[in-house]
Amino acid sequence: MSNALKVTAPEGLPFVDFEREFDAPVSAVFAAHRDPALVAKWMGPDGYEADMTEWDFRSGGNWSYVHRDPEGNEYGFRGVFHTVRENEFAIQTFEFLGYPDAVSIESMRFEDLGGGRTRLSGHAVYPTLEARDGMVASGMETGMREGYDRLEALVTA
């Protein structure tokens, strides 16, 4: 795919950066992050079902969801949207309930590249290198790649 996900997890540092371009305008990519029904269609690994128990994509809003894999195993996540600026920026906390007490702070930038294209870039900071490495080892990059491929299909349909 020409819009491949790029994930960088520098050795010895407790953060992850990512970048992905989409052949869709910023407003469509942002809307697909705001609407819980749309988020449920693209978030996470292929074959997983997302149950969006709460998704209030605004400054001060809470969020939580459960992913179910094809075998029925459940994986819970929750956080708070600290700042959301329409078609531009969001910062949130992120906690995987299977690895409690390791909350990351994540920012996402929605950049208009012109010509109906968008760059989404993010930076996630973890409390420890161990927590960061645990998320990376959990298959985070695969889930992000597969989810963003579905997001691309959704916003270009």
Results as ranks from 00 to 15, higher is better:
Ser2Cys: 11
Asn3Tyr: 09
Leu5Phe: 02
Lys6Trp: 06
Lys6Gly: 12
Thr8Phe: 09
Ala9Gly: 06
Ala9His: 09
Pro10Cys: 08
Glu11Cys: 11
Phe15Tyr: 15
Phe15Pro: 08
Val16Phe: 03
Asp17Thr: 14
Asp17Trp: 08
Asp23Met: 01
Ala24Gly: 04
Ala24Tyr: 01
Val29Trp: 00
Val29Met: 00
Val29Lys: 00
Ala32Asn: 04
Asp35Met: 07
Pro36Ile: 04
Leu38Asp: 04
Val39Gly: 05
Val39Tyr: 06
Ala40Gln: 05
Gly44Asn: 04
Pro45Cys: 10
Asp46Ile: 15
Gly47Ser: 08
Gly47Pro: 07
Ala50Asp: 04
Thr53Asp: 14
Thr53Tyr: 12
Ser59Thr: 02
Gly60Trp: 06
Gly61Leu: 03
Ser64Leu: 06
Val66Pro: 02
Val66Asn: 07
His67Glu: 07
His67Tyr: 08
Arg68Trp: 04
Arg68Lys: 13
Pro70Phe: 00
Glu71Gly: 08
Gly72Phe: 01
Glu74Cys: 08
Tyr75Gly: 01
Phe77Glu: 01
Arg78Lys: 14
Gly79Glu: 04
Gly79Leu: 06
Phe81Leu: 08
His82Asn: 12
Thr83Cys: 06
Arg85His: 11
Asn87Tyr: 00
Glu88Ala: 12
Glu88Lys: 09
Phe89Lys: 01
Ala90Ile: 09
Ile91Cys: 09
Thr93Met: 07
Thr93Lys: 09
Phe94Met: 13
Phe96Tyr: 15
Phe96Ala: 14
Leu97Glu: 11
Gly98Thr: 00
Gly98Asn: 05
Gly98Gln: 06
Gly98Ile: 01
Ala102Phe: 10
Val103Ser: 08
Glu106Thr: 14
Met108Cys: 14
Arg109Val: 11
Phe110Lys: 04
Phe110Val: 04
Glu111Asp: 11
Asp112Asn: 07
Gly114Leu: 00
Gly115Asp: 02
Arg119Thr: 00
Arg119Val: 00
Ser121Ile: 03
Gly122Tyr: 00
Val125Phe: 06
Tyr126Val: 09
Tyr126Thr: 07
Pro127Lys: 13
Pro127Cys: 11
Thr128His: 05
Thr128Tyr: 06
Leu129Ile: 13
Leu129Thr: 12
Ala131Val: 03
Arg132Thr: 05
Arg132Tyr: 04
Arg132Asp: 06
Asp133Arg: 04
Gly134Val: 09
Met135Arg: 13
Met135Asn: 14
Val136Arg: 14
Ala137Arg: 13
Gly139Arg: 04
Met140Lys: 11
Glu141Arg: 07
Met144Ala: 10
Arg145Leu: 07
Arg145Tyr: 03
Arg145Asn: 12
Glu146Asp: 12
Glu146Gln: 15
Tyr148Ser: 08
Tyr148Gly: 09
Asp149Gln: 14
Arg150Trp: 03
Glu152Asp: 14
Glu152Gly: 15
Glu152Trp: 10
Leu154Pro: 01
Leu154Gln: 06
Val155Leu: 07
